[in-house]
Amino acid sequence: MATLEHSETPGEVAGDGVRRRDFINIAAVSFAGVGAATVLLPLINQMNPSADVLALASIEVDLAAIKEGQAIKTIFRKQPLFVRHLTAAEIAAADKVDAASLRDPQTLEQRTLAGKKQWLITMGVCTHLGCVPLGAGEGEVKGEFGGYFCPCHGSHYDTAARIRKGPAPKNLEVPVYKFASDTVVQVG
């Protein structure tokens, strides 16, 4: 906008004062540019999760019906969530392992809430390439370490859902959760 081709135009603009008055052109174009950039914000933000999706970003799970040794698969943020009621033997098996020797060193304590060691709550998403591991459902293969087994590329997780064998780099992710009451967990 600033480069006016005065030589080409009829009715030549008076020579002096032109540069000073170019300021208004620059101001107008810059102002419009700021406006256009501001308009981009809602156009980009509309792709973020909508209010109804966010409303389901936090769920409550009732633990009352899950017996010792059982696990359930539920859905959290449109992905599988494993809630497992560990047996004393499973807890012992998990505690026996030296955490420092693991690929992703974590103890069972670090992966559960204090005083609720028997409740292992993890995402059902293999940390390798995102398949759903087996082991939560009744009669499913639990893998060599008695926890979860991902059939896609053979990752084995132990009873604390830690990666023990196979290509997965990390333990199954533990989401943020808290106990709303003794039998109800609020996830997310």
Binding site: P42, L43, N45, Q46, N48, S50, A51, D52
Partner: peptide
């Protein structure tokens, strides 16, 4: 109505 109520800036668009 989902656009009008829940989508970010959906009402405006």
């Amino acid at each position: 109505e989902h656009i009008m109520r829940d989508v970010n800036s959906g009402w405006m668009l």
